[in-house]
């Protein structure tokens, strides 16, 4: 067991955990932020996507030892009132069906648009191709990322 210091959604947190544990389970179980989801455990589906120091990271394979001292943003910390342009675009385009993967989709899209505010359709496809949606909301995700990029 080890003491790990994290900044999550702007708040400093100290937890005592197995440092080999992936960040995802600390977020979900130790911090109780269940908006970040477990999907595959091998960084193939992206449901667990969070922002770490400005990058889009798959938290299911990110060891806690590497997160020490880092600033982490989860879906719960993306906006105060669900008013981030990506969240708004997701509502406007009525994207989610079951909704399970959408935290990962929204986080990945938000981080992508920070780096590339005016992407082409191909760039959107490429940036979002790491996040799986079994309900098949892809046509709406494309439209929503485009809409957010224009807002």
């Amino acid at each position: 067991m080890a003491i790990i210091n994290l900044t999550v959604n702007g708040e400093k947190k100290t937890i005592e955990v197995d440092p080999e544990m992936p960040l995802l389970w600390a977020i979900r179980e130790n911090l109780g932020l269940t908006g970040t989801k477990f999907g595959c455990g091998i960084a193939q589906c992206g449901s667990c996507t969070v922002r770490i120091d400005g990058e889009s990271v798959r938290s299911c394979t990110y060891p806690l030892s590497a997160a020490e001292g880092k600033s982490i943003v989860t879906i719960e910390g993306l906006s105060e009132d669900n008013d981030h342009p990506v969240q708004q675009a997701w509502i406007e385009e009525q994207v989610p069906q079951c909704g399970y993967c959408q935290s990962g989709q929204i986080m990945n899209a938000a981080i992508f648009l920070e780096k590339n505010p005016h992407p082409t359709d191909e760039e959107i496809d490429q940036a979002m191709s790491g996040i799986l949606c079994r309900c098949g909301c892809y046509t709406r995700i494309k439209k929503a990322v485009k809409r957010a990029s224009l807002s």
Binding site: G35, F38, Q87, I91, P96, I106
Partner: peptide
């Protein structure tokens, strides 16, 4: 008509069994 469950599914608030 817009679905009332959608806002809950854009900010991590919707609860699933695993949560």
């Amino acid at each position: 008509v817009w679905r009332s469950d959608i806002p809950l599914k854009t900010n991590g608030a919707a609860k699933y069994g695993i949560d």
